[in-house]
């Protein structure tokens, strides 16, 4: 597989005159799990959206490089097709579009999955196995996408899509919020599964210390006022636990 290291170089992001990210740099290599922590409004979700190419989060300066290519000119769909996936904190509801119809349409967008080669029966076989894995009942295939889903069900569907699309880089924005204990373990397992089998790199935005402990991250970053103020290993977690985000 091609190099799928994510390099963020000196990223500046301003929205409506507000500095959201300032000279932010970060490197995530294949199979690495990076945790992004920080107080509300620090810029965590903004960074996630900038990486996946949200049209309202276009950096003014700096570069995002994925596998040695600058992604800046790429549309969100191109970024997705190149293997950058984001699990949303609150995924949109799409009326009238069934989960199965959506997944079958989307899977064809990924050249590396070679979806056109599988028959529909193989697709469903694979899909059902993944649904079991994330704990979604099979009748969810006929439900409208995210419509009327509970918070937990939405998160399970996000994980299902991550496992199905096998991204090279996955960004998870507060995936652990509104999860019960069972779902919590499912998410941890899904992350480790992709880390191991697909060498997926992760950027995980979270506030949850138990979650981080379960995940065994490669690196933890503390983001404040749009800057990474500290990066480190587990020792950083212990300090944050003790002193909160305010300690410098």
């Amino acid at each position: 597989m091609a190099n799928s290291t994510l390099k963020i170089e000196n990223l500046d992001l301003e929205i409506a005159g507000q500095k959201v990210l300032q000279a932010l740099s970060m490197t995530i290599r294949p199979s690495e799990i990076h945790i992004l922590m920080g107080p509300n409004g620090a810029g965590k979700s903004s960074l996630a959206k900038a990486i996946v190419g949200h049209p309202h989060y276009v950096p003014q300066r700096g570069h995002i490089i994925f596998g040695e290519q600058k992604v800046d000119p790429w549309t969100p769909d191109k970024r997705a097709q190149m293997g950058i996936f984001m699990a949303f904190q609150s995924p949109c509801e799409v009326e009238g579009v069934s989960v199965a119809n959506f997944l079958r349409t989307a899977i064809h967008a990924y050249p590396h999955l070679q979806a056109s080669q599988y028959a529909a029966t193989q697709f469903y076989h694979h899909l059902y196995a993944l649904m079991d894995q994330v704990g979604l009942k099979r009748d969810f295939t006929g439900r409208e996408l995210n419509k009327g889903f509970s918070g937990g069900e939405k998160k399970r569907l996000e994980m299902l899509q991550m496992l199905l699309f096998q991204p090279r880089l996955a960004i998870l924005d507060e995936i652990d919020s509104s999860l019960d204990i069972e779902a919590f373990q499912m998410v941890v397992d899904a992350i480790h599964c992709l880390q191991k089998n697909c060498k997926t790199g992760f950027l995980i935005v979270t506030h949850s210390i138990p979650f981080i402990e379960q995940i065994c991250p490669s690196r933890i970053h503390l983001l404040k006022f749009g800057r990474i103020v500290q990066s480190g290993g587990k020792e950083l977690l212990a300090r944050i636990q003790k002193f909160g985000f305010n300690e410098n």
Binding site: A80, C92, E95, G96, V97, T105, A106, L145
Partner: peptide
């Protein structure tokens, strides 16, 4: 636009995302 963005993030082209939303609207 957020819905289109969500669908685009899953690999659908903008026109495909729009078609899917419109077809969903009349489904």
């Amino acid at each position: 636009e957020e819905k289109l963005f969500y669908l685009q993030q899953r690999g659908l082209k903008r026109s495909e995302a729009m078609s899917l939303s419109v077809n969903g609207f009349v489904n």
